[in-house]
């Protein structure tokens, strides 16, 4: 479904990604783990068109997407839920969600999709008239996820959904990601909670200093010595 082949990305004159290759198959949940500064967010931004790769190619369902602007990539069915929520603070919860359905192909169905999002996040239904900035961190993350779902994506790219959230809320977030996985949406996920992430992901990649150093089924990676030492503290 998503194929990233030998992608290198620069931030100005600094190279952040080196020859990164990665794949997400239909309906699969893939985790991307690595230390801060390893280039995880850069990789997601390259996929969603916020950054252009210096070399390599990215294809989505057989169509080449590197070099396309981000709105065109959303149109194809990739939805990027950015780190730090990035809500529209002075707009209501409902308006935030509706903006997620901006594309013509979903705008006419927005009420229907909105109902589905409210089913997934009942609290947002109760809060729909509130300004986004007045919500708690967990609720804000739910709005960000809901907004990402409003464009009816087939691939959801999620950057650190649990950052800054209380442990109970983090559990809730993982439950929601599992629900989405159950609906057949493919997910590419960055997370700090390596243990929990590897438990829900099918496969995982480890990114270190801009290079993929390890990949495999999450089950196997949980027992890999390197992962245990570096990320699980065992």
């Amino acid at each position: 479904m998503l194929e990233v082949e030998n992608v290198s990305t620069m931030y100005g004159r600094i190279q952040v990604l080196w020859d990164v290759s990665l794949a997400v198959r239909e309906g699969e949940t893939v985790a991307l783990v690595g230390a801060n500064g390893a280039g995880k967010t850069t990789l997601l931004e390259t996929v969603s068109g916020m950054l252009k790769p210096a070399s390599g190619r990215i294809a989505f369902r057989g169509k080449r997407i590197d070099g396309l602007p981000s709105h065109a990539i959303v149109e194809l069915g990739i939805s990027h839920i950015p780190e730090g929520r990035r809500l529209f603070p002075e707009m209501s919860v409902r308006e935030n969600l509706e903006m997620g359905a901006y594309l013509a192909r979903v705008w006419k169905d927005k009420q229907e999709i909105l109902d589905r999002v409210f089913q997934l996040f009942p609290i947002l239904h109760a809060r729909q008239g509130q300004l986004a900035r007045t919500l708690s961190g967990g609720e804000q993350q739910m709005v960000a996820m809901g907004r990402g779902l409003m464009s009816r994506p087939s691939l959801l790219v999620i950057d650190e959904p649990s950052s800054g959230l209380a442990p109970l809320v983090v559990d809730e977030m993982f439950r929601i990601i599992e629900t989405l996985r159950g609906e057949g949406i493919a997910i590419l996920l960055i997370e700090q909670n390596v243990q929990q992430t590897l438990e829900i992901a099918t496969r995982a990649y480890v990114l270190e200093n801009g290079r993929i150093t390890l990949e495999g089924a999450s089950r196997d990676l949980l027992h890999e010595d390197l992962i245990k030492k570096a990320y699980l503290g065992l």
């Binding site: 709105h71 959303v74 529209f88 707009m91 903006m99």
Partner: peptide
């Protein structure tokens, strides 16, 4: 119109607006 809301969302977070598919 939805363009009015889109303009507002550009004002509040241009990057996020691009992520929702707006041709900013």
């Amino acid at each position: 119109s939805k363009y009015g809301f889109a303009l507002q969302s550009i004002g509040q977070g241009e990057e996020a607006a691009a992520h929702t598919g707006i041709h900013v």
